[in-house]
């Protein structure tokens, strides 16, 4: 019985040692991946910063104003002025085009009161 326990614990130690060995390498692999991910996050951050800066630069008011002036014929954009505000009643809604009446039906009320 006792020798069986000895053998069992020895086997357990061998098993644990093998497990620890594998875990060690798995951890090192994970750490490498984490480092790689951190690098990629950093690079993505840097790229994002550049894109944000570029977005802000391309949308700077001076440039937008120049573009609006260059493309006035196509876009007809004007600065926002008080005239742009109106009341709802002042909006002229387009009237739906009903078209000419072509197929007329002639009706007669002759004899209505004499059934």
């Amino acid at each position: 019985m006792r020798s069986f326990l000895f053998v069992l614990s020895a086997l357990a130690i061998v098993g644990l040692a093998f497990w620890a060995y594998r875990e060690n390498y798995a951890t090192q692999q994970s750490l490498r991946e984490v480092r790689d991910l951190h690098d990629r996050i950093g690079a993505a951050h840097a790229r994002l910063t550049v894109l944000n800066a570029e977005w802000a630069y391309l949308n700077r008011p001076d440039r937008l104003r120049d573009l609006v002036e260059l493309n006035y014929e196509r876009l007809e954009l004007l600065p926002l002025t008080p005239e742009a505000f109106a009341r709802l009643e002042q909006v002229a809604y387009p009237q739906p085009d009903l078209g000419p009446i072509l197929e007329t039906i002639e009706t007669s009320s002759d004899g209505e009161d004499r059934p």
Binding site: H38, I41, G42, A46, T49, N52, A53, A56
Partner: peptide, 23 residues
């Protein structure tokens, strides 16, 4: 998040960038 070592941006009241950093 990794520590950002760079200077913080400055934005206007609507969040539009007034000052940022470039590598």
């Amino acid at each position: 998040s990794a520590i950002m070592a760079q200077r913080a941006d400055i934005v206007d009241r609507n969040g539009r960038v007034l000052a940022t950093n470039l590598e």
